[in-house]
Simulated assay, not measured.
Amino acid sequence: MVCEACGGDTVAFAVPADLREYAPESSAHAAICSTCLRTHAVSDAPAEPTFEAVHESFPSGEAGAAFALALGLLDSLALRRDAIDDCCSYAERAGADVLLTLDRLAGADSLDSHFDIERRRHQLAEMLR
């Protein structure tokens, strides 16, 4: 699938049941763009998503799904604070280091994120304290 916003390649994934309210269209499946990091609802997803196609440091499994949902919401931290917090907490409980991964994504030349990663990383660090 191709990203509706930028035309980049996407990675489809199953949305954990506890986070479906934060998924695009509250869908059971979503996709994250490997270029702009936007998320989109999709009708189906593979059993094992290839999150490393986004970046080598991207978490895998449910941690990756939760982190992907958080990235899709980060363009509006003020309006989606609770949703972002829930997604990041879920990702961390599943084994991801959210702030470290954001640091690594900030240095990735292949990304053209829909939000300022470095600025959001700082704001997220303050929020997750």
Rank of each mutant, 00 (worst) to 15 (best):
residue 100 L to E: 14
residue 11 V to G: 07
residue 3 C to K: 11
residue 70 A to T: 04
residue 106 A to H: 02
residue 3 C to D: 10
residue 64 G to S: 10
residue 13 F to W: 10
residue 10 T to N: 05
residue 82 D to T: 13
residue 74 L to F: 11
residue 49 P to H: 03
residue 32 I to L: 13
residue 114 H to D: 04
residue 70 A to Y: 02
residue 35 T to N: 13
residue 55 H to L: 04
residue 96 A to Y: 02
residue 6 C to F: 07
residue 71 L to I: 00
residue 92 E to F: 03
residue 80 R to K: 14
residue 98 V to M: 03
residue 82 D to A: 15
residue 82 D to F: 12
residue 117 I to K: 08
residue 105 L to E: 10
residue 65 A to K: 03
residue 23 A to C: 10
residue 122 H to G: 07
residue 11 V to P: 05
residue 32 I to V: 15
residue 123 Q to S: 15
residue 26 S to D: 13
residue 93 R to A: 15
residue 126 E to F: 03
residue 49 P to M: 04
residue 61 G to D: 05
residue 85 D to C: 09
residue 84 I to A: 10
residue 124 L to E: 09
residue 10 T to I: 06
residue 53 A to W: 04
residue 26 S to I: 01
residue 8 G to E: 04
residue 65 A to N: 08
residue 14 A to P: 13
residue 35 T to K: 14
residue 45 A to D: 07
residue 47 A to S: 12
residue 82 D to K: 14
residue 129 R to P: 00
residue 81 R to T: 08
residue 26 S to N: 15
residue 39 T to G: 12
residue 21 E to W: 10
residue 17 A to R: 15
residue 21 E to T: 08
residue 105 L to N: 08
residue 91 A to V: 10
residue 54 V to C: 10
residue 55 H to A: 15
residue 79 L to P: 09
residue 35 T to F: 11
residue 36 C to N: 12
residue 117 I to F: 05
residue 37 L to M: 10
residue 126 E to W: 11
residue 87 C to Q: 06
residue 65 A to D: 02
residue 52 E to A: 11
residue 52 E to I: 04
residue 112 D to T: 12
residue 103 D to C: 07
residue 122 H to E: 15
residue 93 R to I: 06
residue 64 G to M: 12
residue 74 L to N: 14
residue 107 G to L: 10
residue 117 I to M: 03
residue 83 A to H: 10
residue 18 D to Q: 13
residue 16 P to E: 01
residue 23 A to W: 05
residue 86 D to T: 05
residue 68 A to S: 15
residue 92 E to L: 00
residue 15 V to S: 03
residue 39 T to Y: 06
residue 91 A to S: 11
residue 70 A to R: 05
residue 120 R to G: 01
residue 40 H to P: 09
residue 69 L to Y: 08
residue 127 M to D: 03
residue 29 H to E: 13
residue 113 S to Y: 02
residue 24 P to K: 02
residue 14 A to K: 15
residue 4 E to W: 03
residue 46 P to W: 01
residue 1 M to N: 03
residue 65 A to E: 09
residue 39 T to L: 07
residue 88 C to M: 05
residue 42 V to W: 04
residue 78 A to D: 14
residue 70 A to P: 06
residue 110 S to D: 14
residue 83 A to D: 14
residue 102 L to W: 05
residue 83 A to C: 07
residue 98 V to P: 03
residue 26 S to T: 09
residue 11 V to R: 02
residue 92 E to P: 08
residue 53 A to P: 00
residue 93 R to P: 01
residue 114 H to A: 14
residue 19 L to P: 11
residue 95 G to P: 05
residue 94 A to E: 14
residue 93 R to G: 03
residue 97 D to G: 01
residue 69 L to K: 07
residue 129 R to W: 08
residue 124 L to P: 01
residue 36 C to L: 07
residue 88 C to G: 01
residue 78 A to E: 15
residue 122 H to K: 11
residue 18 D to Y: 03
residue 86 D to V: 02
residue 94 A to D: 10
residue 108 A to T: 08
residue 47 A to M: 09
residue 64 G to A: 12
residue 25 E to A: 14
residue 62 E to F: 00
residue 30 A to N: 06
residue 87 C to R: 07
residue 37 L to D: 00
residue 48 E to R: 14
residue 38 R to M: 11
residue 122 H to A: 15
residue 93 R to N: 14
